[in-house]
Nucleic acid binder design. Structure first.
Lengths: 245, 245
DNA sequence: AGATGCCATTTGTCTATACATATTACCTGG
DNA sequence: CCAGGTAATATGTATAGACAAATGGCATCT
């Protein structure tokens, strides 16, 4: 609300929000298809009897959300989304498990401080011989192995991690609370469990697993690379999405 | 540009963008950690010698991007991101294959117009007996099966689809161009190939596959449900993400 | 001490105005 | 007829001022 809701017809929402829903509605309903030129700012001004700053705020917001594209002198156009994009939420595993009403368990299987091998170098963009912390742990849901985590941490970027034994607190939880990041990359794939994995996850050899690999940087400096392997039948990622953002 | 660049020190970017990068920098660098209260609007006004509307635009933008939370009377605070989120891009398969420099192929395996079974009803939120189009097709990359698509289409929502034989144009491509949607849900999981799947995809029985299931609605009305099965070794999803949005 | 109401502060929204900038459409001279 | 300049137009950014709404704290009353 705000802005004296001039003549009571205002149902408690801000004017610019009403205008925005209005326009969004026409776009998603197909009334204004991709490529369609929407009214000029001064036309919307007249339509809604408001100042240009108000409609400008709306159109800028829609442009920021990717629903429209704006061109000087030409006008604003409904943009055509080329790809399906979905905002994938990858929460802390502990929170994930507990939100299903299951008991969460954690075990550190291996902790090793060493210098980067050629393999590590390929995995993150590390310098060869950079000091790293290699961790291997298991996450359980309702006493069943739920994920195997295999992580390397760049100690040049996160020296504090060397002081942490990760026997109680999972590295992912510690990192979220202590290390800001600027860039992340996820790769999601499927693979068959080999013998070692099958033993650790208590599943049959050959069972399909969902593999999530994440790499994180901070201003270009590599922080960590993690590989999470979930037993196929026990896990799936879900993403919901609306074009409005 | 814009706004008379008061005294030339302006490097060609708008004032509000300079302020925004400035603040974003302090946040991602950790100088202003999660929970930290950032300066009040009137303090930023003084700092940057500008009007309140300008800093308001910056802070509102940061709030929309999820970097800060704003509370009346209390101030604006750096928000603590609880989940890793990633924008997953799921492009048209044809574009995906060709962007890898491989030849794309498509084959329609099955096309059936019928009424919804109980199984279909569970898959989308269809009414029982609603008219649907069931499709099964294969996508190839460099002559190798690359994905098996199994789709149902709600003909009540998309009557035009009944006129389309999908022998040349993949349904996903046709849909993107013809049907706007307001909501989508993705589920990503892993599974072992059974005999039928192994035969269609030309892989061994038991090979791990990446399974992507997508359901799409338009203003609450179900449009389509699709299940894409990719041979594990041949495919992965990649998402890149920066907190700034 | 505890409940209650008022006030100051901060963000939220809106207006009216101004000038900058990019780009198209048009006009004019060669 | 074309090249080049010019005006018109729509967006981009910024300002100053105004009032609304939410809320934390303080003062007051019981």
């Amino acid at each position: 609300m705000t802005a004296p809701s001039k003549r009571g017809a205002n149902a408690g929402v801000a004017l610019y929000q009403r205008i925005r829903s209005d326009i969004e509605g026409r776009i998603v309903s197909g009334e204004w298809p991709p490529g369609h030129r929407l009214p000029f700012e001064h036309e919307l001004m007249d339509t809604y009897s408001c100042a240009r700053m108000t409609v400008n705020k709306v159109l800028s917001g829609l442009a920021a959300a990717g629903l429209v594209e704006r061109k000087r002198r030409a006008g604003s156009f409904v943009s055509r989304p080329k790809v399906h994009s979905a905002v994938l939420q990858i929460p802390d595993l502990k929170a994930e498990v507990e939100s299903r009403g299951q008991r969460y368990g954690y075990a550190l299987l291996q902790r090793q401080k060493r210098t980067a091998t050629r393999e590590d170098k390929a995995r993150l963009d590390l310098d060869l011989r950079a000091p790293i912390l290699a961790l291997r742990c298991r996450h359980d849901a309702a006493k069943q192995p739920f994920a195997l985590e295999d992580r390397i941490l760049n100690l040049d970027a996160v020296p504090d991690a060397a002081q942490q034994d990760f026997s109680e607190v999972p590295p992912s939880t510690w990192l979220v609370d202590h290390v800001p990041w600027t860039e992340a990359e996820h790769r999601i794939s499927a693979g068959n469990a080999d013998e070692a994995l099958a033993a650790d996850l208590n599943i049959d050899v050959g069972t399909a697993c969902l593999i999530i690999e994440r790499r994180t940087w901070r201003n270009g400096q590599p922080i960590t690379a993690v590989r999470l392997v979930h037993p196929g039948p026990l896990y799936d990622l879900t993403a919901r999405f609306t074009p409005s953002g």
